[in-house]
Amino acid sequence: MPDLKPIAALGGDTARRLHHGALELEENTELALASLALRRDATQPAPFGIDLPGLGVWAQSDEIAAFWTGRDQWMVEGQNRADRDFASEIAALCPGSSVTEQTDGFVAFEIRSSAGETPILQLMAKLVNIDPIRFPSGSATRTGLEHMSVFVIRRAAHHIAILGMRSAAGSIWQALESHILRIGDRKP
């Protein structure tokens, strides 16, 4: 049996990072994901004590977060849990729900600004079809990024996350990198 070694979505042994001007882009290799859907007549659970959010909302408690993806459906995030069977953990806490492991199907990119929210607003205005002023902290939605479908999460005023299909990781990185290189040098 060969000695198998996991690699990041972008093919490296470690997460890829880019720092340019006020913006930092990082591949988040430690984020576990599981989709959760209620079955008919099931009571809405609260995995790890999180009240599952409604349309357009992202909710967080410590290293666990969730965002709405459809009627009675959510994506649950577990920071620093990518090396665990996260879906089994969620399933054990959510009877009457269907839970599916999503960690290896998605890639997550974290974008932070060291100069407040202005660079993030400028980046969002160029990247995605979302009005950044109407997308405050705690918001999440699915939208298009160039030719790809992605989830955008506003984790904080100065921090957004882009989640997309792992098979498109290189294309998503390239799109984010090109916009960051253009915006990163602007003064707030």
Rank of each mutant, 00 (worst) to 15 (best):
G144W: 06
L123Q: 06
I153G: 01
M1C: 07
P136H: 03
A66E: 01
D41H: 11
S88Y: 06
I64M: 06
H20K: 04
S114I: 12
D72P: 10
S35G: 14
D62S: 09
H19W: 03
S178V: 09
M148A: 07
R39D: 04
A169R: 03
M75Y: 06
C94Y: 04
L4D: 08
D131K: 14
T143D: 11
R81E: 08
L121Q: 05
H20P: 00
E27W: 05
A15E: 11
D41L: 14
T43F: 09
A115R: 09
P136A: 06
D131H: 10
V99N: 03
A66L: 06
S88W: 08
R186H: 15
T103I: 06
G21C: 15
G54T: 10
G21T: 15
A140Y: 03
G21N: 15
I172S: 05
S88G: 11
L36Q: 03
E26S: 14
K5T: 05
I120G: 03
A157R: 07
R84V: 02
I172Q: 05
T14F: 08
M165E: 12
P6G: 06
S35M: 08
Q44M: 13
Q60D: 00
A8G: 11
T29E: 15
Q174F: 15
G54M: 06
E24H: 02
A157L: 09
W74K: 04
D85N: 10
R16C: 02
I160N: 04
E146A: 13
T43S: 13
I172E: 01
A82E: 03
P53Y: 06
A125I: 00
E110S: 13
A168K: 12
Q122P: 05
L163P: 00
A82K: 03
A37R: 14
S167M: 09
G96T: 14
E89I: 01
L55N: 08
G164C: 07
L33W: 05
A37W: 04
E27S: 06
L33K: 10
D13Q: 07
S178M: 13
E26N: 09
I90V: 13
P95L: 07
D72S: 11
L121A: 05
L145R: 00
E146P: 04
H20F: 07
T14L: 11
E77R: 01
T143V: 15
E77D: 02
L38M: 10
P119F: 05
A87V: 07
L55S: 11
S35V: 13
A65W: 01
K5Q: 08
G105R: 10
F106C: 12
H158G: 02
R112S: 13
N129M: 14
P2K: 07
A42E: 03
L10V: 07
A175L: 13
L127E: 00
A65N: 02
L127N: 02
